[in-house]
Amino acid sequence: PREAYIVTIEKGKPGQTVTWYQLRADHPKPDSLISEHPTAQEAMDAKKRYED
């Protein structure tokens, strides 16, 4: 089974940042970016789909 994890990042100019959620996995390479999402819920949904 595949495993993934969610990383929170800040995008934008200082003082005007927006939080994004990255879905990452250690396949095919360590810390590979799988997808980016504007909400934590979307990231969790993507994580479930990826791991299923």
Score class of each variant (00 low, 15 high):
20 W>E: 03
42 E>N: 05
42 E>L: 09
21 Y>M: 01
22 Q>L: 04
16 Q>H: 14
8 T>G: 05
39 T>C: 03
6 I>Q: 00
8 T>I: 13
42 E>D: 12
3 E>G: 15
39 T>E: 03
40 A>Y: 15
21 Y>S: 01
21 Y>I: 01
42 E>K: 07
18 V>T: 14
17 T>G: 11
33 L>V: 13
34 I>K: 04
12 G>L: 04
18 V>W: 07
48 K>Q: 11
36 E>M: 05
6 I>L: 05
9 I>L: 07
27 H>W: 15
44 M>C: 06
43 A>C: 04
49 R>L: 13
12 G>S: 05
5 Y>T: 05
11 K>V: 11
4 A>C: 11
42 E>V: 03
8 T>N: 06
39 T>H: 04
7 V>W: 05
1 P>M: 14
38 P>G: 09
27 H>G: 07
13 K>D: 13
3 E>M: 14
19 T>N: 06
47 K>L: 13
48 K>L: 12
36 E>I: 07
34 I>P: 00
28 P>D: 09
4 A>W: 10
13 K>A: 14
32 S>M: 12
2 R>S: 09
49 R>E: 11
5 Y>E: 02
32 S>C: 05
38 P>Y: 08
25 A>V: 15
37 H>L: 02
28 P>K: 08
26 D>I: 08
46 A>W: 04
34 I>A: 01
38 P>A: 15
3 E>K: 15
35 S>R: 00
37 H>E: 01
21 Y>W: 13
33 L>Q: 03
7 V>Q: 07
40 A>N: 10
35 S>T: 03
39 T>N: 11
11 K>G: 05
30 P>A: 11
2 R>H: 14
19 T>Y: 08
14 P>T: 07
32 S>H: 14
38 P>V: 10
47 K>T: 01
35 S>A: 02
22 Q>I: 04
38 P>K: 13
50 Y>S: 02
12 G>D: 04
30 P>Y: 09
37 H>P: 00
23 L>V: 14
49 R>Q: 12
23 L>Q: 01
17 T>F: 10
7 V>D: 02
10 E>S: 10
43 A>F: 00
22 Q>A: 04
39 T>Y: 04
37 H>G: 00
14 P>V: 10
28 P>M: 08
37 H>C: 01
6 I>Y: 02
15 G>Q: 06
10 E>A: 08
48 K>A: 12
15 G>R: 03
21 Y>D: 01
43 A>D: 00
28 P>T: 06
8 T>A: 12
17 T>R: 11
41 Q>F: 08
12 G>T: 07
33 L>G: 01
25 A>S: 15
8 T>K: 15
25 A>E: 04
24 R>G: 01
21 Y>K: 00
45 D>T: 08
43 A>Q: 00
20 W>K: 05
7 V>I: 12
18 V>S: 11
15 G>C: 05
8 T>H: 08
51 E>R: 05
37 H>V: 02
33 L>C: 05
16 Q>D: 13
5 Y>V: 06
2 R>P: 11
44 M>Y: 14
21 Y>G: 00
40 A>T: 07
35 S>D: 02
1 P>A: 14
16 Q>L: 10
29 K>R: 12
23 L>I: 07
16 Q>T: 11
33 L>D: 01
5 Y>D: 01
32 S>W: 11
24 R>I: 10
30 P>C: 06
36 E>A: 03
8 T>M: 14
14 P>S: 07
11 K>H: 07
27 H>I: 13
15 G>F: 07
29 K>E: 14
21 Y>L: 01
4 A>F: 13
38 P>C: 06
17 T>V: 10
25 A>P: 00
28 P>E: 08
3 E>H: 15
3 E>Q: 14
45 D>R: 10
35 S>H: 01
26 D>G: 12
41 Q>M: 11
46 A>L: 02
51 E>G: 05
3 E>N: 14
6 I>M: 04
49 R>S: 10
31 D>P: 10
18 V>Q: 12
42 E>T: 05
30 P>N: 09
37 H>R: 00
47 K>D: 00
40 A>R: 15
48 K>T: 10
27 H>F: 15
36 E>D: 04
29 K>V: 14
31 D>W: 13
20 W>Y: 08
28 P>H: 10
13 K>H: 14
1 P>N: 15
11 K>E: 04
49 R>D: 08
19 T>E: 06
1 P>Y: 15
47 K>M: 11
32 S>L: 08
9 I>S: 05
32 S>V: 10
26 D>Y: 08
52 D>A: 14
